[in-house]
Design a protein around this nucleic acid. Structure first.
Length: 206
DNA sequence: ACCGCGATGCAT
DNA sequence: TGCATCGCGGTA
């Protein structure tokens, strides 16, 4: 079942970030169907979050998508070559968004390997925001896609709801200019899942 | 294992 | 100018 808009519109972005773990992210791009279970997420809580593109509710040509209704996809380019995929959440008008950082591959694994130029799934294919976005065909041209009605990119129910014991939390990465926000525990992952991005030492139980 | 760095486009 | 990144080649 495709997740309805009500899934995305709650006030608590951290709860939604955790609820997205275990959901099934699907894409049908270039005539190729791929899907994967979301196993790592990262929350960006505008307007007070200095790490958010929409810090201070700043509206630019890039960030305007972030003010779209909850359940909208936000795709932007980082380092000139990676099309990172995010989900807009929160009450309409808030610019909260959640970066999808890793998925466990399900359908279309042959397509993912071809897009990534890798021989097998044991080589890191979807364990990072840039990597899984390539594997699933994410592209800036799909920015502002309505994930509740799109036939290009959508999110379905997947695993049963995870318990808190199955989730680890840690600080976000790449926070060089976010000052006090850089230590916020806004990054979530499925405990023990081998498809998450490279482990580090800062994870702890909820 | 870890570290440094280049690729490459676009927002500011 | 500096990224919400990745893969490579160096050193160990």
């Amino acid at each position: 079942m495709v997740l309805p808009r009500s899934f995305y519109e709650g006030e608590d972005i951290l709860e939604i970030s955790k609820s997205l773990l275990g959901k099934k992210l699907c894409s049908d791009i270039g005539g190729q169907f791929t899907s994967g279970i979301i196993v790592e997420t990262e929350a960006y809580k505008a307007p007070e979050d200095k790490a958010s593109h929409a810090f201070g509710n700043k509206v630019t040509p890039r960030t305007v998508t972030m003010f779209s209704p909850p359940g909208t996809g936000y795709i932007y380019i980082i380092y000139g070559m990676y099309h990172l995929f995010n989900v807009i959440t929160g009450p309409e008008g808030t610019a909260h968004c959640i970066l999808i950082r890793a998925v466990e591959p399900l359908d279309g694994q042959d397509v993912m390997l071809e897009r990534r130029g890798k021989p097998s799934m044991i080589k890191a294919v979807t364990n990072g925001p840039g990597k899984f976005s390539i594997a699933m065909g994410m592209h800036k041209k799909y920015d502002a896609t309505d994930l509740t009605i799109s036939s290009d990119i959508w999110i379905e129910t997947g695993w049963p709801e995870l318990s808190e014991e199955e989730i680890l939390v840690g600080p976000r990465v790449g926070m060089s200019t976010a000052e006090e926000c850089s230590n916020w525990p806004y990054r979530f992952r499925v405990k023990g899942n081998k498809w998450t991005s490279k482990p580090d030492k800062v994870w702890y139980d909820l």
